[in-house]
Amino acid sequence: MSDPKTPRSKSHSRSSDGGKSGKVLRAVLSCIFSFMVALSLFAASTACIVRGVLSEKYTISCIAPSYYDGLKESLEKDAWDYTIPTGIEPSVTKDIFDTATMKSDMENYIGSTFKIRKYTIDTSSQGAVLKERVYDFLKSEGTPTEPVNPADSEVELDEESVKAYNDAVEATNTAVDEYVDEIMELYRKSIKIAALDYIVKVGNEYQKYFPFLMIISVLFGLINGFFCMKVHRLPHRGLRYLVYAFGAGFLMTFTIPFIIYLNGFYNRLNIAPAYFKEFMIAYVKGALAMFMVVSQIWLLIAIILGVLVAILRKKRLRSEARPEEKGVSAEDDASLIIK
């Protein structure tokens, strides 16, 4: 056993590691591992958020109730524009479509698109109502809508007149059918969201790679975290670098989305109609909010680890009466940045 009054030589000290160069090496390695942990945190959070954004649930959540009101108004205007030149009273299309049905159709359409399934929007009931209104209007205008049967007629009709009459009725009925089909087609087109097919395609491709991205990010983070701790003999020193890592993870995940949020370029999107623009704004804003929320988790962990570092360090210092006797030099106990 060594004489307690004789200072230990560095070669007998457990913390002996080549002195200053060893400390610098430990610091450099710790920084590298810590940086890698920060990168893996950023990668993991980005991967998760992108997965969340390219999903059916998120897409539906971005559709505000006002979307359907705007859609209904736009649809009625388009129907009016289509109806006017025909000579049909444009009020026949008023309130044909209700927002509850639109919402249901839209959610089913979005769900089917994400599942790569075809969804047929059923407009049979609205079509029947519209047809009835059109025929009521035509009857009020005295337009013949039913063929005549000479046998049922009280007046004798010649064959040519009957044929001309029935031809006109058939043309009217065909025109009405075409008109109703066009209005229903307007509705079906309005339910579809532009670029959704593209989002679904990208999302589904991404879903294939997502598990690998997560596993790689997590493993990478864990391995680097482990080595970050291993480089230091005392746990609170290794933990300090993990605090830097989580702090960096917070900054990386938070900063750019926050800057974009402040810039607000998405509020100046040149897209119409207004309800679709609001949907796109909500979509982008929601994604940015997710980044900012997730980043708070890293910040919270960084704070907890920081507190843990302080506790462990205090515990360590209290347990040492004289640091030199325990073989831990005062230099070892200082942070990298001293001097």
């Binding site: 810590s34 940086f35 920060a38 605090v243 830097y244 960096a248 920081g306």
Partner: peptide
Amino acid sequence: AYIYMPVIFSIIA
């Protein structure tokens, strides 16, 4: 160090 180390890491990233 709890402030500037994360900032440096973020800038590098």
